[in-house]
């Protein structure tokens, strides 16, 4: 057995600011994870199709446009409806603290806000998988 943790990093919606998403992708790679990077302007449908085909353990969503309350839950709902509710969804971007409770309730398991260090993301992943990447 030689299981690798696989993670989709995606930008839903129309927002083109990909500095954060690319940083996370690269940092997760350096931490030993296999990261599938989809690029910008992804619909929730294409993110979910990607996550399922790639058989990932996590989906990380990055969004700075403020459309997170609409788009993040949609990804979770689609995963659930396609029998892939076991895939863990987390998110990041310009997200007000007052939205965190709502997003959590809708199945986004963690939100990383501006300034959150990558170590927080990694400990979250480790806590969910019970192991480290390498």
């Amino acid at each position: 057995m030689n299981k690798k943790i696989r993670i989709v990093i995606a930008k839903p919606g129309l927002d083109g600011h990909d500095r954060g998403a690319k940083y996370i992708a690269r940092a997760l790679k350096d931490a030993g994870y296999e990261v599938i990077y989809t690029g910008i302007r992804q619909t929730p449908e294409s993110i979910v199709a990607t996550a399922i085909q790639e058989d990932v353990d996590f989906v990380g969503l990055s969004l700075l446009s403020g459309a997170h309350n609409e788009l993040f839950p949609r990804v979770v709902d689609l995963l659930n409806s396609q029998n892939a509710g076991d895939i863990v969804v987390f998110g990041g971007g310009v997200i007000p603290e007052e939205d965190l409770a709502f997003l959590k309730e809708r199945g986004i398991e963690a939100i990383f806000r501006p300034g959150a260090p990558i170590s927080e993301v990694i400990s979250f992943i480790e806590s969910k998988t019970g192991s480290t990447a390498a």
Binding site: Y37, T38, Q53
Partner: peptide, 30 residues
């Protein structure tokens, strides 16, 4: 990566318009 064992799999980025087509299956491998 020979150092971390991690990878960035980005080829499918150029094929993402087909992501939701049920007749197309794209799988990235490290």
């Amino acid at each position: 990566s020979p150092f971390s064992g991690g990878a960035i799999l980005g080829d499918r980025l150029r094929m993402q318009t087909h992501a939701t087509d049920p007749g197309v299956f794209i799988r990235s491998m490290a």
